[in-house]
Simulated assay, not measured.
Amino acid sequence: MATTPDDLELERLATRIGERLRAARDRVVTAESCTGGWIAKAMTGVAGSSDWFDSGMVAYSYEAKQALLGVRPQTLESQGAVSRETVIEMVSGALVHSGASVAVAVTGIAGPGGGSADKPVGTVWIGWKRRGGYTHAERFHFDGDRDAVRRQTVARALEGLEALL
């Protein structure tokens, strides 16, 4: 079982991402569901983040995912909010509705309730995309309580963003 990252580790990740974004003159946008803005919080906690952080969108409900990110109702109805298809539409929509060149999106089940046999608590989809590029989406299963699942999601989203850069 992986250890849950602490605040210092999240800060270090966000700082490295900011350095890479600044050097490349890129800007990032976040589209978050289960993390409730925590990825954006981690990045904007870095001094100077206004140079490279564009915006963050928290889209928790189906309606918000549709209105803010352009997720299709058919996708939500057929695949559910926690799915590869939904996170791909979220990350693509974040780029469409922002001035950013790089995006990260997350959707998942942080618990303690809301899980099912095929999507247990701790199931999270994360998507990363560079404007005009291919979308990478990956499914994870994180252990622990609600805070631990959310914290691990933030860390993995940041690690994937760092790898994309």
Rank of each mutant, 00 (worst) to 15 (best):
D147W: 12
L69A: 02
I126P: 07
A59W: 09
W125K: 00
S92F: 03
I126H: 12
Q74I: 01
A105G: 10
S98K: 07
E63T: 13
P73H: 08
G56E: 06
A64N: 01
Q66Y: 09
D145L: 03
S55P: 02
A105T: 09
G133N: 02
S61R: 04
V121R: 10
Q66E: 15
A137L: 05
L95S: 12
T107F: 10
Y62K: 04
V96E: 10
A103L: 04
A81I: 10
E85V: 11
P73N: 07
G93E: 03
V106H: 08
G99I: 00
I88S: 09
E138A: 11
R131G: 05
D54H: 13
G113I: 00
G80R: 00
D145H: 02
V71C: 05
R84G: 10
A81H: 10
G115F: 14
E63N: 13
V149E: 04
V106S: 14
R130Q: 13
A103G: 13
I109Q: 02
L69Y: 04
H97T: 14
V71E: 04
A117R: 14
V124H: 08
A137Q: 04
L68G: 11
A59T: 15
K119G: 11
G114L: 09
R131M: 05
V82R: 10
D51E: 15
V46T: 06
E85M: 08
G108T: 05
Q79D: 13
I88R: 15
G56Y: 05
H136W: 08
Q74R: 02
S92V: 13
T86P: 05
W125N: 00
G113P: 00
S101H: 11
V91R: 10
G133S: 07
S116M: 02
S116N: 03
S55Q: 15
P73F: 11
V102W: 06
T135Q: 07
T75Y: 08
G144N: 03
E138L: 11
E63P: 11
G144M: 03
G132V: 09
K129A: 10
T107N: 05
V46H: 07
V104N: 08
Y134P: 13
W52E: 00
S92L: 06
D145P: 00
W52M: 00
D143N: 13
G132H: 06
I109D: 03
S49E: 03
A100E: 05
Y62H: 13
V102A: 05
T86C: 15
G144Q: 03
A64D: 08
L76I: 08
G113H: 14
R130E: 12
W125R: 00
G113C: 07
